[in-house]
Amino acid sequence: MRTFLLLSSLSFALFVGIILISSRLPSPMPEQAVEGKLVWQKHNCISCHTLFGNGGYVGEDLTNITRKETPSQIVNYLIKPPVVPPNKYTHHPGLAIKDAQNLVHYLEFISTIPTLGWPPQKEKAGKES
């Protein structure tokens, strides 16, 4: 039993240490991005969308959305949310403009985090520039 307890404690301590070292951000996170993270959490966006592939599968992964759409396009989408197909009447949840802007800052920051080549989705021609 002692060996089991010792092994468990040491493994857990080492694991926590490695996680702390591995969690370093590539650059400091701007204040607006932190605010945007709170907006993301408050509106439970994770239930329908994924970040880094983790979350709900109903909506598109948003890890690199700011590379495909401009900030103003995303803000407009969020403050005047369109109908989400296959629905005919139900709109995407909407946000106040300030919240939408902060959320875009958060998503912009997310896209700067290196994800080792994931997602493998091919970029569409003409959208990259």
């Binding site: 996680i19 969690s23 370093r24 996170m29 970040l51 985090i113």
Partner: peptide, 10 residues
């Protein structure tokens, strides 16, 4: 606030 730590801890 760190999204990497957040994901890892989750």
């Amino acid at each position: 606030s760190n999204p990497i730590t957040d994901e890892a801890t989750k």
